[in-house]
């Protein structure tokens, strides 16, 4: 990779990551939290691909594929839990889940 500086790639990935994180923190809707998590993971993918192309290694892409696996697994569990929550609480508001504290 010649023309795109690594620095800028990392900045882009950080930006996306922060946006995702803000989404996870700020949104009350669990579905949006899961989506924001996807944004975060995606941002990590950007960083890995960028780094891989800087070092001219395939490792970055391998890591991206592994992250893809993780994202799939996470979404599966997350959505299943979401359905469970919808059934149980009739709401997706994450703030409903605060029985345990102290």
């Amino acid at each position: 990779m010649t023309s795109i500086p690594l620095f800028h790639v990392l900045i882009l990935s950080s930006l996306l990551f922060v946006i995702g994180f803000i989404g996870v923190v700020a949104r009350k809707n669990t579905l949006f939290m899961l989506m924001s998590l996807e944004v975060m993971l995606n941002a990590v993918g950007v960083a890995f691909i960028g780094a891989g192309s800087v070092w001219q290694q395939a490792d970055g892409q391998v890591m991206f594929i592994l992250i893809l696996t993780l994202a799939a697994a996470e979404v599966a569990v997350g959505l299943a839990l979401l359905i469970r929550m919808q059934k149980k609480y009739r709401s997706l508001d994450i703030d409903a889940l605060n029985q345990m504290k102290g």
Partner: peptide, 21 residues
């Protein structure tokens, strides 16, 4: 059940994203 599952899922996914980044 749901509460602890969600808390753990979201937080650990966030943490692992941080770690991955």
């Amino acid at each position: 059940s749901v509460e602890s599952g969600f808390k753990y899922l979201i937080l650990s996914a966030t943490a692992s994203s941080f770690m991955l980044l």
